[in-house]
Amino acid sequence: MEIGSSVVFTIPLFGGIPITETIVVEWIIMAVLILGAAVVTKGWKLVPEGAQNVVELMVEGFNKFVEGALGEHWRDYAPYLGTVAAFLILANTISIFGLTPPTKDISTTSALAIMSITTVIIASIRARGLKGYVKHFFKSPINLFINVLDLFTRPLSLAARLFGNIFAAVTIMELIERAVPIVVPAVFSLYFDLFDGLLQMLVFVFLTMLYIEEGIE
């Protein structure tokens, strides 16, 4: 099992731009999400019915979950959190369809972590103002140390936790498939490919939401 991602092809520009398997799978996931959103929302009516009912219930439930943590600020951050959740649902469980999860690549989880921490910083600045955000670093020498340390440890924790769990799940499934190639892998796949993937999505989104909540208090 390789930690990195193999190069699928190279774009002949600027001396060659390597396109890895991780990037290709991410493109597939983004295409599925965009097309899925276009198909599901096509022809929506004022009075929901059928698939529209299901989608609206899911969105409403997620919005209430975010509102419970962020209060009146939920509208500003629910779209980002929902988009990350939708991406991670597919990214973490796509091995069910025979593709390698992009979250098995540390570069993907690092990018997601940096995006989330940037959102946290922006949320804090919006809530406190730039002066208030800078001021909270200097309440005391220990506060300065802890707050600066948080800027590095939080994204590192988000990235490493997601990467480590997905990488471990994929590795274990490959070992099981090699040892017992019939029937048994399908049973374990329910946990390692599906349940664990959904669980890691919830953990990542919940921690991001928790950090935003702390930032806007």
Rank of each mutant, 00 (worst) to 15 (best):
A159R: 03
G15I: 06
F138L: 09
I166K: 03
V25D: 08
F206H: 05
R154I: 08
A186K: 03
A111M: 14
L35A: 15
S5Y: 11
V184P: 04
A127E: 04
V66I: 05
G16L: 02
L207T: 13
I3S: 15
N143C: 07
L175G: 02
A111K: 04
I122T: 10
S140P: 11
F97H: 04
E2Q: 12
G71R: 05
L70N: 08
V54D: 10
I166A: 08
A69G: 13
I34E: 04
A85N: 12
V39S: 09
Q200V: 13
E67D: 12
V40Q: 10
V120I: 11
M30H: 13
I216D: 10
H136M: 15
A91H: 09
A91D: 09
F14I: 04
F195L: 13
V183A: 03
A127H: 02
E214R: 09
I182H: 14
F87R: 01
N147E: 09
R126F: 12
V39W: 14
T100S: 10
N165T: 10
Y211P: 05
M173C: 01
K64A: 08
F195T: 14
V39M: 11
A37T: 14
L81S: 10
V183C: 02
E56Y: 08
D196E: 15
F14V: 08
Q200S: 03
M173W: 00
S110R: 00
T83K: 13
T109V: 14
T103Y: 10
S157G: 01
L144S: 09
K42Y: 12
P181V: 06
P48L: 02
V148G: 02
V8H: 07
I142Q: 13
L162K: 09
W27K: 06
A37G: 00
V148N: 02
V148D: 08
M30R: 14
I17M: 09
V8L: 07
F145S: 08
L194D: 02
F163Y: 14
N147G: 11
I114G: 04
A186V: 01
E60D: 10
H73W: 06
D193S: 06
V47S: 13
H136Q: 11
T208C: 02
P101W: 11
E177D: 12
P12I: 09
T119D: 06
M58Q: 07
L194W: 03
T83P: 06
E174C: 08
G82S: 03
N92C: 05
W44K: 14
K139A: 15
S157A: 15
V205M: 03
I23N: 06
P12N: 07
G164H: 04
T171G: 10
M209Q: 00
